[in-house]
Amino acid sequence: MASLLDTVEHAQVAERVSAGRSWLQGLDPRAKVASTLAVILAATLSRRLTPLVVLLAMGLATALASSIPLRRLAFRVWLPTLLFTGAIVLPALFLTPGEVAYRLPELGWAVTVPGSRTAALLVARVLTAATFATLLLLSTPWNHFLKALRILRVPTVFVVILSMTYRYLLVMLETASAMFESRRSRLVARLSGREWRSLTTATAGVLLEKSLVMSNEVHQAMLARGFRGEAYTIDEFRMRPADWVWTLAIPVLAFAAVWLRR
């Protein structure tokens, strides 16, 4: 229940931040999508830590200039990235052969210098990519982001499914939240873990059924307005000089940083 509400709250915050009038929010979505993809590519290709630190610093400066709360970035992006990527690279610290940098007390396992470097590089790459991707999503209204993807020739199926998923995920979250509240209001006894799991599974089943009914109705509503298997959108975006500067400058800076420290 708490995580459902948290997801809805996160979506609301993202909408509020993207509607702001700061630096990144004012740029053309296509410029932001193209530059973000370039930075992610540059970060992936980087073989050294310094360029990644430079890129990460650029991301932080952009976040500050765009009034994007660093606290949200820290808890929503950096912490999960460190935890998950850290778990993945943990064995590399010990298994990569090379000079021993540190030996764990009691266990005696050796942390090697090349292992530490590999682990730091991977974590920094993921951190940089996740930071820029989050900046893009937090500074761009969802509908503009989808439209930009389509204009940049991202496959149709991907964009439509992404759009529908986000739209109806929120509807289903509200339904799920109402179902849990309704159930809680009628519970008088304390349920065991097993009973809770059983109830949750039943709720998931009902939600699945509701989503199927809704998908049929949505399809009917689309047909009723002339949908014949192809959907169209209007390109209303206009590139201004600042958008062109951003589109060209960010990828050039990112690749220059990587190339100079190759």
């Binding site: 949505v218 399809h219 169209y232």
Partner: peptide, 21 residues
């Protein structure tokens, strides 16, 4: 609710479509 249309999921129906400018 039953649909009179061939019983495909929304994902499948979307996959058959395109979203063009």
């Amino acid at each position: 609710m039953a649909s009179a249309f061939p019983c495909r999921s929304l994902g499948e129906r979307m996959a058959m479509s395109s979203f063009d400018v």
